[in-house]
């Protein structure tokens, strides 16, 4: 599926005979409500729901656990042949052992049910959040250029203007 799905708040994939999640499932990461019931799903592999930060209601077949475990959800209820996973918990909050310790300059952010990511904090950016703020290129260039030009001219005037090229090349 090469097409890019437009943001879908609700996605009904019930009764689609899905044995596994489709490969482009990740493109539905904006879904708020997602229905996977009536599918012969065996299990949901880890990380299938990476990026599903908006998801508030997920209905899966009863045979399948809620992604991230029941601890990742505020409320897990079963009815009939379905299991309803409601309201993701923020894994960054509290003393959950799920929350990773983010490196310096990065903060934890939710990244789907039971999943978290480390994003650059504040003004940090770049690979591994090693950089902060933007280098003032114009200021640096103008200062350096001015100083260089001034010094070069001054020295040329005082030193080399009357210099004879006695030690010319060659």
């Amino acid at each position: 599926m090469g097409t890019v799905l437009s943001p879908i708040p609700r996605l009904d994939l019930s009764d689609c005979s899905l044995r596994t999640l489709p490969s482009a499932f990740g493109e539905a990461a904006d879904a708020v409500v997602l229905d996977l019931t009536e599918n012969p799903l065996a299990a949901l592999p880890d990380g299938s729901f990476l990026g599903f930060t908006q998801l508030q209601q997920l209905v899966v077949p009863k045979a399948v656990q809620c992604p991230g475990g029941s601890g990742a959800w505020q409320e897990v209820t079963t009815y009939g042949s379905s299991r309803l996973c409601q309201s993701q918990r923020n894994p960054c909050n509290g003393s959950e052992e799920l929350a990773p310790l983010c490196p310096e300059n990065a903060v934890c952010a939710p990244d789907g049910p039971g999943l978290s990511q480390c994003l650059c904090a504040g003004s940090f950016h770049g690979y591994k959040c090693l950089r902060q703020d933007a280098f003032p290129v114009p200021l640096f260039c103008s200062v350096l250029g001015t100083v260089t030009a001034a010094l070069s001219l001054a020295l040329w005037g005082t030193q080399r203007r009357h210099a004879a090229g006695l030690r010319g090349a060659g």
Partner: peptide
Amino acid sequence: CGLLTSPKEV
């Protein structure tokens, strides 16, 4: 622009 390599030059 500014270096004189030897006193001869000036």
